[in-house]
Design a protein around this nucleic acid. Structure first.
Length: 884
RNA sequence: GGGCGAUUAGCUCAGUUGGUUCAGAGCACUUGGUUUACACCCAAGGGGUCACAGGUUCGACUCCUGUAUCGCCCA
C-alpha cells in the first residue's frame, strides 16, 4: 500500500498477512520441548453466523494466544464447531417444512441425509469469519463434535459411565418442549414473569351438595387431576377427611388428600393435584399413591388418556375449558395473577412438565472434585464472584437428563432386545448382539432382534469432553498430544454457559483424566447495545461484524471490543468503539510515516535532547510493560490495552517523537534513528496481540525482513529494571512545558517567538537534566538561575521551584495577582487541613511514623509555597504601584 | 421467595491488604490551534459530598450494619 497516504487502509493488508501467516504455518502447533499454552475454542454452532459476542470472545482468546506465542510458548488454539443438536435440527425441520416435507414421514436415515447436507452447506462459515478478525487458530486441528473420533469418544464415555453405574434410565418428570418434541435439561428452561389469571374452580363433593373451591393458574390440567389436596391443620377442610370430589367436565371421582406441603394462605387453601404435569404434584402423587394421567401428547395436543378434548391444542384447551367451566357453573371467579412460566430456550415455547422415559446421569459423586478444585483455587475464575454461582449450582444439582428425542446427534448406544424388557449398552450392534446373547442366554438372537434407542444425547454430553476429545484423550488416554496439551491454560467463554458447559467440563476433566481441564476461566459478559438491550435480530440492533471489519478494519474492531470489556461485565456496544480503534490504527500508521520520512545523516552528532528523551522513554517503557504484564496475568485486558494505547499515543507519539523530530527538512542522526526504530519495533510487538494486522504490516516495513519472518513469532519485550527518578523528573519536565505552553496560549505568543526562562530555588532539589528538552518543546532560548525575581514576568511554580518568563509589556499585573492569589488561597486551605491533622493529638500518637512524616513534608512544602506566593504577590503589587 | 453482585465525572469503567503518585482513565463536552506525521489530529480546560443513614477508627471510596435502587442466577 502507498506509504504516502495519510490514512491507513486496513482491507489492503489484512487479507495479505492472514494468508502469509497461513502459508508459513505460523498458527501450527505440534508438541515439542517448549512449554505448551493451549486454548480450546468454545465451539460455535456449526451452522451459526458470527455475531458480536463471538468477536469479543475470540478476540480475547487470540490476544492471549498471540502473547503466549511471543513469549516463546508453544501456543495451540484448537478451533471447531458444535453440532448443536436441538438448534440445528430445528433449522433443518423448518427448511424441510418449507419444502412440504415432514420429518417423521421421511424417517431417520433420510432426515440425517438432509441434516448433513445442511451442515455441509452452512457449516464452517463461522470459522471463515473468524479468520477475518485475525484468529490465529491451528486450522489443521479443526474439530466438529460429530466427527468420527469425537463421536466414538462420546459413545465410549457413555458406556464407561453406564458400566460404572452412573447412567440410568427411568420415568421422571422432565421439561418437555412440545415444539421440538423433546425433553430438555433444567438449564435449557428460561423463566419469564407473565401476567396471567388465577382461576377459582369449585369441585362438588361426592354424595353432598357442598363444593370445595380450588385456585389454579392452569385450569386446562384439571382433566388430569387425580386428587384435591388440603392442609391437615386447615379448619375449613377438616370435615373432608375420607371424602371424594368430582372433577368437573370429566366427572371423575378423586380423593381429598391431606398434606402439609399445602400453603394455607394461597388461594383457597385447596390445591388440585395433577401428578403428570407438575413436579410438586408428582411428588404428592407418589407419596399418596395417586393415579397419573398424562393428558398431553408429545406435541402438546390433548391425549386420548384425557378422555375428552382429545387432539385439541393445549392453548386452545385453556380457552375452551374456561368456557365450559363457566357453562357448567363451576367457575367461581378469575383474578389477575403474575406467575413465572418456563420457556424452552431454543424454541421459545412454554415448557410442559411431563412424565417421560429418559436417560439420566447421576451427579452427586461426579461433581465433588469439581467443587473442591474450584474452591481451592486449582481452577481460577475471573472474575472470582462466579465461584459463588458455580458452587450454588453444583451443590443443588439434580441428575442430568442426557437424552433428547431428536435425531441430529449421537444416538444413544442402548439396544433393546426384542421380546424382552432387556437392553444392552454397546458401541456397535455387533458387540450389542454378543452382550444380548450373554444376557438372555439365547444364542439364536440376531441383529434383527435388536433395536437401538431412538434418542440422541444432549449436545453438552459431547461438548463436556471437548478439551479432552479434541486431543483424542478419551479413545487414546495416553497419546502424546493429550499428555502435552492437557490441561489447557485458559477457557474464555460467556458466563451464561457456566452450568451448561464450564462446570460439566470441569467434572468431566476429573472423571476422565483425573485432572483439571484448564487452569483459568475468563468469563466474558454479553454484548449489548447502548440501552443495555441484548443484541438481537428482531430488534435489528446487532451490527454485522463483517461489515464493521470492512469499515473500521479488523484491528479497529478488535481494539473497540477490548476497550471496555471487563471480565464478566457486559459490553455496551456502539460504533464509537471501533471508530476509536480505527483512529488509533491511523495514529500508528502516521507515526510510521513520520519516521520513514526522515533522511538519515551518518555524519551529524546526536543532539542532547534526543539522547535524553530516548533514555527516558526506555525507562518509561519498562515501567509500563511491568504494569502490562500484571494486567495480563490478572486478565485485565481492557486495562492492558489502555496501557499500551497510552504508551504509544501519549508517551511515544506526543512526547518522544515531538522531541526527536528533526527540524523541517533537516536529516536525523543515525544513532537516534536506529534507537527509535528499535523502540518502534518493541512497541509494535507489545501491540501485536491486540492489533495483529497493522503491527505486522509496519514491522515488515521498518526493516528488511526475510521471507517467512513475522512479528507473530518475535519475542515479546520483557520488563527489566528502570530508573524511577528519571521517569519522575521527566514528569516534572512535562509539567514545566505545559505551564509555558499555557502562558503562550494566554498571551497569544506564537511558538516561533523565542522566550527566556528564569528560575529561582533556594534549596538544591532542582534538576537540570531535561533543560534541553524544555527548550525544544516550549521555544525557550535560555534557562537561567536567578536570585531575585525579575520584573514584568509571568510566573508559575512546579514542585518547589519558581519559574519566570519575562514578557515585558504583555504582562497584565492585575491578572497575575489574581491568579497567584487564587493559588495562594488554595494552598492555605490545603495547609490548614494538614495542620488540623497534625494538631490532632490522637493522630500524632496513633498513626504510624511514615504517615506522620509525610504529613510533615506536606506542611513544609505548603509553607514554602505560601511564602513564595506571598512574596510574588507583594512584589507585583509594589511594581504596580510604582507603575502608576 | 433464596442467593450473588453492583451503585465513583454526562457515558462506560479502574481504584490491588484503610493514610499525597486516592479521588483516576477513556470517551463525550468546552476553549484554542493552517506548529508540513496524523482534523480519523494537536494543546489546554471544566466536571464527582465516591447511592443514602449509622457504626468501627486518630483517619473510611475502601471495613461492619441497615435502607433504597438496579442487574444477574436459582426456585
Amino acid at each position: 500500500m502507498s506509504e504516502t497516504s495519510t490514512k491507513y487502509n486496513p482491507s489492503a493488508t489484512e487479507e495479505k498477512w492472514y494468508q502469509y501467516w497461513l502459508d508459513n504455518k505460523l498458527f501450527k502447533s505440534i508438541p515439542d520441548e517448549r512449554e505448551p499454552f493451549t486454548i480450546v475454542i468454545p465451539p460455535p454452532n456449526v451452522t451459526g453466523v458470527l455475531h458480536m459476542g463471538h468477536i469479543m470472545n475470540n478476540t480475547i482468546q487470540d490476544i492471549l494466544i498471540r502473547r503466549a506465542r511471543m513469549q516463546g510458548k508453544n501456543a495451540c488454539w484448537v478451533p471447531g464447531t458444535d453440532h448443536a443438536s436441538i438448534a440445528t435440527e430445528a433449522k433443518v425441520v423448518n427448511k424441510l417444512a418449507e419444502e412440504g416435507i415432514d420429518k417423521n414421514a421421511i424417517g431417520r436415515d433420510e432426515f440425517m441425509k438432509h441434516a448433513w447436507e445442511w451442515t455441509k452447506k452452512h457449516g464452517g462459515i463461522i470459522l471463515e469469519q473468524l479468520k477475518k478478525i485475525g484468529a490465529s487458530c491451528d486450522w489443521d486441528r479443526t474439530k466438529f463434535t460429530l466427527d468420527k473420533d469425537l463421536s466414538e469418544s462420546v459413545i465410549k464415555t457413555f458406556i464407561n459411565l453406564y458400566n460404572k453405574g452412573l447412567i440410568y434410565r427411568g420415568i421422571r418428570m422432565v421439561n418437555w418442549d412440545p415444539k421440538a418434541k423433546t425433553a430438555v435439561s433444567d438449564e435449557e428452561v428460561e423463566y419469564k414473569d407473565e401476567q396471567s389469571k388465577l382461576y377459582y374452580v369449585k369441585y362438588q363433593i361426592v354424595d353432598s351438595n357442598e363444593f370445595v373451591t380450588i385456585a389454579t393458574t392452569r385450569p386446562e390440567t384439571i382433566i388430569g387431576d387425580t386428587a384435591v389436596c388440603v392442609h391437615p391443620e386447615d379448619e375449613r377442610y377438616k370435615h373432608l377427611k375420607g371424602k371424594k370430589v368430582i372433577i368437573p367436565l370429566v366427572n371423575r371421582e378423586v380423593p381429598v388428600i391431606f398434606d402439609d406441603y399445602i400453603d394455607i394462605e394461597f388461594g383457597t387453601g385447596a390445591l388440585k393435584v395433577t401428578p403428570a404435569h407438575d413436579e410438586n404434584d408428582y411428588k404428592l402423587g407418589q407419596k399418596h399413591n395417586l393415579q397419573v394421567i398424562d393428558i398431553f401428547n408429545e406435541d402438546g395436543t390433548i391425549s386420548k388418556e384425557a378422555g375428552i378434548y382429545e387432539g385439541m391444542d393445549r392453548f386452545e384447551l385453556r380457552k375452551s375449558i374456561i368456557d365450559d367451566l363457566e357453562k357448567s357453573g363451576n367457575l367461581v371467579k378469575i383474578e389477575d395473577y403474575t406467575n413465572r412460566v418456563g420457556y424452552s430456550q431454543r424454541t421459545q415455547v412454554p415448557i410442559e412438565p411431563k412424565l417421560s422415559m429418559q436417560w439420566f446421569l447421576k451427579m452427586e459423586e461426579l461433581v465433588k472434585p469439581a467443587i473442591e478444585n474450584v474452591n481451592n483455587g486449582n481452577i481460577k475464575f475471573s472474575p472470582k464472584r462466579f465461584v459463588n454461582t458455580y458452587n450454588h449450582w453444583l451443590e443443588n444439582v439434580r441428575d442430568w437428563n442426557i437424552s433428547r428425542q431428536l435425531w441430529w446427534g449421537h444416538q444413544i448406544p442402548a439396544y433393546y432386545i426384542a421380546g424382552t424388557n432387556e437392553y444392552v449398552i454397546a458401541d456397535n450392534i455387533e458387540n450389542a448382539l454378543k452382550l444380548a446373547k450373554e444376557k438372555t442366554h439365547n444364542s439364536n438372537l440376531t441383529i434383527n432382534d435388536l433395536k437401538q434407542d431412538e434418542d440422541v444425547l444432549d449436545t453438552w454430553f459431547s461438548s463436556w469432553l471437548w478439551p479432552i476429545s479434541v486431543f483424542d484423550g478419551i479413545r487414546n488416554p495416553d497419546n502424546e498430544e493429550i499428555n502435552y496439551y492437557y490441561p489447557t491454560n485458559v477457557l474464555a467463554t460467556g458466563h451464561d454457559i457456566i452450568f451448561f458447559w464450564v462446570a460439566r467440563m470441569i467434572f468431566a476433566g476429573y472423571e476422565f483424566r483425573n485432572e483439571r481441564p484448564f487452569k483459568d476461566v475468563y468469563f466474558t459478559g454479553m454484548v449489548r447495545d447502548e440501552k443495555r438491550r441484548k443484541m438481537s435480530k428482531q430488534l435489528g440492533n446487532s451490527p454485522d461484524p463483517i461489515k464493521l471489519i470492512e469499515k473500521y478494519g479488523a484491528d479497529g474492531v478488535r481494539f473497540g471490543m477490548m476497550l471496555c470489556s471487563p471480565a464478566g461485565g457486559d459490553l455496551l456496544y456502539n460504533d464509537s468503539l471501533p471508530e476509536q480503534g480505527r483512529n488509533f490504527s491511523n495514529k500508528i500508521w502516521n507515526s510510521y510515516r513520520l519516521i520513514k520520512s526522515w533522511e538519515i545523516d551518518e555524519t551529524i552528532e546526536q543532539p542532547e535532547h534526543s539522547e535524553l528523551a530516548l533514555n527516558w522513554f526506555k525507562n518509561k517503557f519498562h515501567e509500563q510493560i511491568k504494569d502490562l504484564d500484571k494486567q495480563y496475568d490478572t486478565f485485565k485486558l481492557s486495562e492492558a490495552l489502555m496501557t499500551v494505547y497510552r504508551l504509544f499515543k501519549d508517551e511515544f507519539s506526543s512526547w518522544l517523537l515531538e522531541i526527536i523530530k528533526p527540524d523541517y527538512q533537516k536529516p536525523i542522526d543515525s544513532k537516534s534513528y536506529n534507537k527509535l526504530i528499535h523502540i518502534f519495533d518493541e512497541l509494535l510487538r507489545v501491540l501485536h496481540p491486540f492489533m495483529p494486522f497493522i503491527t505486522e504490516e509496519l514491522w515488515q516495513h521498518i526493516k528488511d525482513r526475510k521471507n517467512g519472518k513475522s512479528i507473530m513469532i518475535t519475542e515479546m519485550p520483557k520488563p527489566s529494571s528502570f530508573d524511577t527518578e528519571i521517569i519522575a523528573d521527566f514528569e516534572i519536565t512535562k509539567d514545566i512545558i505545559t505551564q509555558i505552553r499555557n502562558i503562550r496560549k494566554e498571551k497569544s505568543i506564537p511558538f516561533k517567538t523565542k522566550l527566556k526562562l528564569f528560575y529561582k530555588n533556594d534549596n538544591q532539589s532542582y534538576n537540570k537534566t531535561f533543560e534541553s528538552i524544555i527548550s525544544r518543546l516550549s521555544g525557550i532560548e535560555t534557562i537561567t538561575k536567578v536570585q531575585e525575581k525579575p520584573e514584568n514576568v509571568s510566573q508559575f511554580i512546579v514542585k518547589k521551584t519558581e519559574y519566570f518568563i519575562p514578557l515585558g509589556e504583555l504582562i497584565d499585573k492585575d491578572a497575575e495577582i489574581k491568579k497567584l492569589t487564587e493559588e495562594l488561597n488554595y494552598t492555605k486551605g490545603f495547609l490548614n487541613s494538614v495542620m488540623k491533622k497534625l494538631g490532632n493529638e490522637r493522630f500524632v500518637n496513633n498513626a504510624p511514623a511514615p504517615v506522620i512524616e509525610k504529613e510533615k513534608i506536606k506542611q513544609a512544602d505548603a509553607e514554602a509555597k505560601i511564602k513564595a506566593l506571598e512574596e510574588q504577590i507583594k512584589n507585583l503589587k509594589k511594581q504596580k504601584n510604582s507603575d502608576e
